[in-house]
């Protein structure tokens, strides 16, 4: 039976800033959001009048303008780790919401993503220095460096390492860059065990405008770890804009095979975040261009089961345990959306 569902908006908060990252406290509608102003905000979305509150009263924050692009809860939810364009990682005590540890130059360039392993013991960060670093989720000690991405694009411009994702059992970590190169790492041995190609998401314009755009912006392993999904944007004709349709590529990463190439017929822009339903029933991708979208793919048929507008360009989202709610964060807003059978 074909998957049929719909997504409706339940609550929305408008913001003057941009929320680039989001971490949800398990079992609640409480979220942390990383802002374009360099601060991390806590919001209880079940409150009558939800109001984002800046952590530590703003006394400690990332550099103003250092977009906070990575947030993850680790170490049995006792630690919140934030990473930003200011190259810094900060470990916060989740109970007191005070900083307990900071690494000023965790990376040499902008930090693009911070994720926690499913057991919360590891934090992975990726940055435009093209290195993935593994950190102790609790103490913040540096444990390993994974280097498998070129510093430059084939056209001699700086590349960017946009995203990473752990598999559900924590044994695999995938990283992906601007040129569409994906690397799958064996976490215990820290060895690269597969490389994949999604260069269809990278546009280099050699003649009209002579620069590039795009890249793989999001990754997710299926719950069984066999399928790896990558999200981005298709080939762009006019790279002044995010002027191509949202694109997904599904891999059987162990075989190195592309299972499906899926392009939204309706929505343009970047797929900024991907997540599978906990039982693998669907794959959700959110993102946008000037507007936002939510697209659901049926992994069985490898076809789009639903696509609809999001209230804004979505940079990150979180699913509730029952997957009946999606909390989305993005350009000038934060929202709760309800997922229901159509």
């Amino acid at each position: 039976m074909a998957l049929s569902l719909t997504i409706k908006e339940e609550k929305k908060l408008s913001r003057p800033d941009i929320f680039f990252s989001l971490a949800r406290v398990p079992g609640t509608h409480q979220v942390y959001c990383g802002s374009s102003d360099g601060a991390v905000y806590f919001t209880d979305l079940q409150a009558e009048k939800p109001e984002p509150v800046v952590l530590d009263g703003g006394a400690v924050r990332h550099r103003p303008g250092g977009y906070v692009t990575g947030l993850a809860l680790a170490a049995d939810q006792s630690r919140l780790v934030s990473g930003a364009y200011d190259r810094q990682l900060i470990w916060w005590d989740a109970a007191s919401r005070k900083p307990v540890h900071a690494v000023a130059n965790a990376h040499a360039k902008w930090i693009r993503k911070v994720v926690a392993s499913p057991d919360g013991k590891l934090i992975a960060s990726v940055a435009d220095d093209m290195v993935c670093r593994l950190w102790d989720g609790y103490s913040g000690a540096l444990l390993a460096e994974l280097r498998g991405h070129e510093a430059e694009t084939p056209h001699h411009y700086p590349s960017m390492l946009f995203t990473c994702a752990f598999s559900a059992d924590g044994s695999r970590l995938a990283t992906a860059d601007k040129t569409g190169r994906l690397v799958v790492w064996d976490v215990p041995s820290q060895q690269a065990i597969a490389t994949l190609d999604a260069s269809c998401m990278y546009t280099w314009d050699p003649k009209q405008r002579r620069h590039s755009i795009g890249g793989v912006r999001s990754l997710a392993f299926s719950p069984d770890g066999r399928m790896l999904a990558a999200g981005g944007i298709g080939q762009i004709g006019n790279i002044d804009h995010l002027g191509a349709n949202a694109r997904f590529r599904l891999f059987d990463w162990e075989k190195g095979e592309t299972l499906a190439e899926i392009e939204s017929p309706e929505f343009k822009g970047l797929v900024e975040r991907l997540a599978f339903h906990p039982q693998g029933q669907w794959l959700l991708g959110c993102g946008g261009d000037h507007g936002g979208f939510a697209i659901v793919i049926d992994p069985a048929t490898r076809k789009i089961a639903y696509e609809g507008k999001a209230p804004f360009h979505v940079h990150d989202f979180a699913l509730t345990e029952s997957s009946d709610r999606i909390i989305v964060a993005g350009h000038n807003g934060l929202a709760v959306k309800q997922v229901a059978a159509a």
């Binding site: 411009y157 700086p158 002579r210 620069h211 755009i213 002044d240 804009h241």
Partner: peptide
């Protein structure tokens, strides 16, 4: 002439490429 700087989308990544050049 160095074209094309018209960064209606992804201004920061465009400038991260073009300004160092």
């Amino acid at each position: 002439s160095r074209a094309w700087w018209d960064s209606h989308g992804q201004n920061f990544e465009t400038h991260a490429e073009m300004v160092p050049e």
